[in-house]
Design a protein around this nucleic acid. Structure first.
Lengths: 105, 105
DNA sequence: TCGATTGTCAAGTCACCACTTCACTATTTT
DNA sequence: AAAATAGTGAAGTGGTGACTTGACAATCGA
């Protein structure tokens, strides 16, 4: 299991087309051209997006015959959730520590 | 409470400098120029990043006198967590539904 | 084996965004 | 009042990334 670059995950999900792909794959696995159909872009463009999503552990693909089947992968989501949890506790602990005192230098 | 565009949140966090800002603000509130110091960019650039972070509910700022104080805001994080939870349940429910049967047309 | 389907590779185009500079305003300190 | 501090606004530049096209490879159905 390769370590995941959280920056790439955010970057990947920053693009609306890639989020649309993730949406569809969350509902059901799909081939590349089936993903391309509703989005109005070329199959090539979709393949490029898939490479980005795969690189950061959000999607896993497998080619059988001439069809590449794409599925959601949890690793990227796990990394995301971890990042949020980390930051949340970081600042919530701070808020707990001092009632509402301001911080110095 | 304005509704948050999850796309903007991902976009905002896709940039390493903005993540660095969020990191620092998670630890403690800060002024604009204090944020700029360790990052090797101009105060102007930092202000631009802050505008992005503020727009999507990750940061809240308040100007008192000539100093603008920046703090973490939870709205953006809440939206993030919601998005992840949504997608996670979407595909996990699917996995539960059918043992390991493939899906048709 | 021929044609259609599914995807890949390489290269190019165009818009956008992170950053800069420079001029400026407002507040605080001496 | 003068000088220093903190930030804002407008405009420009360069690099990156989302897309395209066109040529190709491999697999599948007739």
């Amino acid at each position: 299991m390769a370590r995941i670059d959280i920056g790439r995950v955010f970057y990947a999900l920053g693009d609306p087309t890639r989020r649309a792909i993730v949406d569809r794959l969350s509902a059901a696995p799909s081939s590349v051209s089936r993903l391309a159909a509703p989005l109005e872009i070329t199959v090539t463009a979709v393949a490029q997006h898939l490479a980005v999503l795969e690189e950061c552990g959000l999607v896993k693909t497998e080619k059988v015959g001439r069809v590449r089947t794409c599925r959601i992968e949890s690793a990227g989501f796990d990394a995301l959730q971890g990042w949020i949890a980390e930051h949340r506790t970081m600042w919530e602990r701070r808020l707990d520590a001092l009632g509402d005192i301001v911080d110095e230098e």
